[in-house]
Design a protein around this nucleic acid. Sequence first.
DNA 1: CCTGAAGTAGACAAGTCGGTCTATTTTTAA
DNA 2: TTAAAAATAGACCGACTTGTCTACTTCAGG
Lengths: 189, 189
Amino acid sequence: MGRRQDLIDTALRLFYEHGIHAIGINQVLQESGVAKQTLYNHFESKDSLVEAAVEHRDKLFFQWLESRMNSRPAGREALMEMFDAVHDWFNNRVPTLHRFYGCFFINTCGEYSDPEHPVHKRCAAHKTRVFELLKRHALEICTSETEAEELANALFLLKEGAIVKAHVEGDLDAALKAKAIASRMISPH
Amino acid sequence: MGRRQDLIDTALRLFYEHGIHAIGINQVLQESGVAKQTLYNHFESKDSLVEAAVEHRDKLFFQWLESRMNSRPAGREALMEMFDAVHDWFNNRVPTLHRFYGCFFINTCGEYSDPEHPVHKRCAAHKTRVFELLKRHALEICTSETEAEELANALFLLKEGAIVKAHVEGDLDAALKAKAIASRMISPH
DNA sequence: CCTGAAGTAGACAAGTCGGTCTATTTTTAA
DNA sequence: TTAAAAATAGACCGACTTGTCTACTTCAGG
């Protein structure tokens, strides 16, 4: 597996559960069983490890979501599948993503508020990537670019809102409620 | 004003901008010009100051939002006003709420993931309070309790989504886009 | 004027922070 | 087999963490 990846995995798990500033480098080392010097051979600072963890989470999450959506026909069905996917995530049925503690990127931006900070930028890039994924599927069922953009935006907001509601209020059905709203928006009766 | 409130104001400002675990008690003391012993006369620990800060932000934010919505006729117009209000917030036109760094309660739950932690609970209570405010207005324009609940929920998700998009991606028009979607949902054409 | 409460400055404690360094052992490849 | 590379344990650094303690000052009310 490699020590570098051990460090990233452990750091991500701890950062995600407790927040980044609450976790010290020594705790990452202890729980990963890696020596301190080894960490500083692979990363030049804690911040650099943080960046790697965010990048890893981006890959992890995006690939999971994309493959879930690709398991259904492009367009409406794939977009609906997104809500089922995050519903599984909220209810801890996706081991790859660890236990659900809200969105790691939202949480991280709460600790790195400066939009010019590299960590914040990576979080923003992740969200933009997910948005583009939605838009790609929205284009399948919309008659214009702007209409697809608007639909993707609506679904995106519903999804982000559901993540927040699930985490802050502990509403484990938030994704299903969001799906019901989205469903009405896509196929107007 | 009172030293206690000075401490809460300063702590809230710093916590909101940088996150709670990134701010030390000494920085709060220095920027508020209060002596350390005075802090520990009013609060038994940092955590207790954190709770007070969250509680203060709850009052500050809720009273502001409620008064903005009350400035318009109950029901549809008040609900639309909510989006204009948060739009002003995103664009730093509400000095009371400080510069916009996302939602303090969402950010704070990112640092206190345990739903049983008193700080997390207070954040959840805030969100629930806002939801009830929306529901009260939704009842004005809905024909049933469940319909109102669903409308309030949809508007709530859109609002939370907009907060996230505005903060993480720096989309300063997120509130207006959410409003447009909400508008279509309230008065179906 | 005096007393008591409230606030101040700052030393101090015990521990943690990110990070460097050394010395040793393990692993890998030629 | 041997030499280089990688990883190890752990001491060490200065700065910072929350929180306590002491001694001094400010201020308000009777």
